[in-house]
Simulated assay, not measured.
Amino acid sequence: MFIYPVELSDLKHDVHRNLFQYWNKIRGNRSMPSRKDFEPTEVPNVLKHILMVNVEQATGRYLIRLLGSETVQALGADPTGQYVDSIPVISRVVERCNWIVENKIPYYYQGNVEWSEKNFLEYRSITFPFSDDGETVDIIMAAMVYLFPEST
């Protein structure tokens, strides 16, 4: 399921609601906030869920800048510092990166993990654009929530 534009009522998880409200707060009356507006201590409950990707304007590539421990656990690896399109199991994410760079608005996604041998996992993601100049998306931030099976 791919939802845009996103409304607070679309979001069922506290991590997503908190980050959505915070993104809107720091955005103010601009179309997108800048990365420098984001203060991690304001939303500490979301940090292990965060994915940050640098948008390289010259190449059109997406560099994984930061990956929270929840996604590292789901993926079974930490691809921080790698380009999204160089990691075969997550290369589909390029399409969503392209979408947010073009549309410049948040979106919500819900589905099964297709990029891990843990493809039985479901996840939910909210993704936001950030821009230093207010026009060009230079950072993409997502909050990923995984529905891990209960331990017995």
Score class of each variant (00 low, 15 high):
110 Q>A: 13
46 V>W: 01
142 A>V: 04
4 Y>C: 04
88 P>K: 10
60 G>M: 11
24 N>Y: 14
96 R>P: 00
104 K>G: 01
129 P>C: 12
62 Y>N: 06
138 D>T: 13
133 D>Q: 07
77 A>N: 07
90 I>R: 13
1 M>D: 11
152 T>A: 11
37 D>V: 04
135 E>Y: 10
56 E>R: 13
93 V>R: 08
61 R>F: 05
63 L>V: 02
110 Q>C: 09
96 R>V: 03
135 E>I: 09
83 Y>Q: 05
79 P>S: 07
33 P>R: 06
52 M>G: 01
50 I>Q: 04
37 D>Q: 11
26 I>E: 04
36 K>F: 09
26 I>K: 07
123 Y>P: 00
142 A>Y: 01
132 D>G: 08
54 N>A: 09
109 Y>P: 00
108 Y>L: 14
121 L>W: 05
102 E>Y: 04
137 V>P: 01
138 D>G: 04
44 P>H: 03
89 V>A: 13
83 Y>C: 09
54 N>Q: 10
137 V>Y: 03
45 N>Y: 08
131 S>H: 09
129 P>S: 12
69 S>W: 02
71 T>V: 09
136 T>I: 08
143 A>F: 05
7 E>L: 11
141 M>Q: 09
66 L>P: 00
94 V>M: 06
72 V>M: 10
111 G>F: 10
12 K>G: 02
65 R>Q: 13
114 E>D: 11
77 A>K: 12
99 W>M: 07
31 S>H: 07
78 D>T: 13
97 C>H: 15
46 V>L: 11
136 T>S: 15
143 A>Q: 06
25 K>R: 14
53 V>D: 02
92 R>W: 11
119 N>T: 10
110 Q>M: 10
123 Y>V: 00
7 E>Q: 14
152 T>C: 03
89 V>N: 15
137 V>H: 02
42 E>R: 14
69 S>A: 12
29 N>K: 08
29 N>L: 08
84 V>P: 02
88 P>A: 10
126 I>H: 00
97 C>M: 15
38 F>I: 12
20 F>D: 02
74 A>H: 08
106 P>S: 11
71 T>I: 10
152 T>H: 10
152 T>M: 08
141 M>H: 02
19 L>K: 03
122 E>K: 15
99 W>G: 10
55 V>S: 03
59 T>K: 10
64 I>S: 05
27 R>D: 06
136 T>Y: 01
56 E>S: 07
66 L>F: 15
79 P>E: 07
47 L>W: 10
4 Y>V: 02
61 R>A: 06
141 M>D: 01
99 W>A: 11
130 F>T: 04
95 E>F: 12
52 M>P: 00
144 M>P: 00
126 I>D: 01
137 V>F: 05
29 N>A: 14
3 I>P: 00
63 L>H: 13
149 P>N: 09
130 F>D: 04
141 M>L: 14
78 D>A: 09
78 D>S: 10
116 S>M: 09
45 N>E: 15
31 S>D: 13
98 N>P: 03
74 A>D: 10
15 V>E: 01
27 R>T: 15
76 G>H: 14
63 L>G: 04
34 S>Q: 12
104 K>Q: 15
58 A>I: 02
2 F>A: 08
147 L>G: 00
102 E>F: 03
46 V>G: 01
20 F>Q: 03
2 F>G: 06
100 I>K: 06
15 V>P: 00
66 L>E: 05
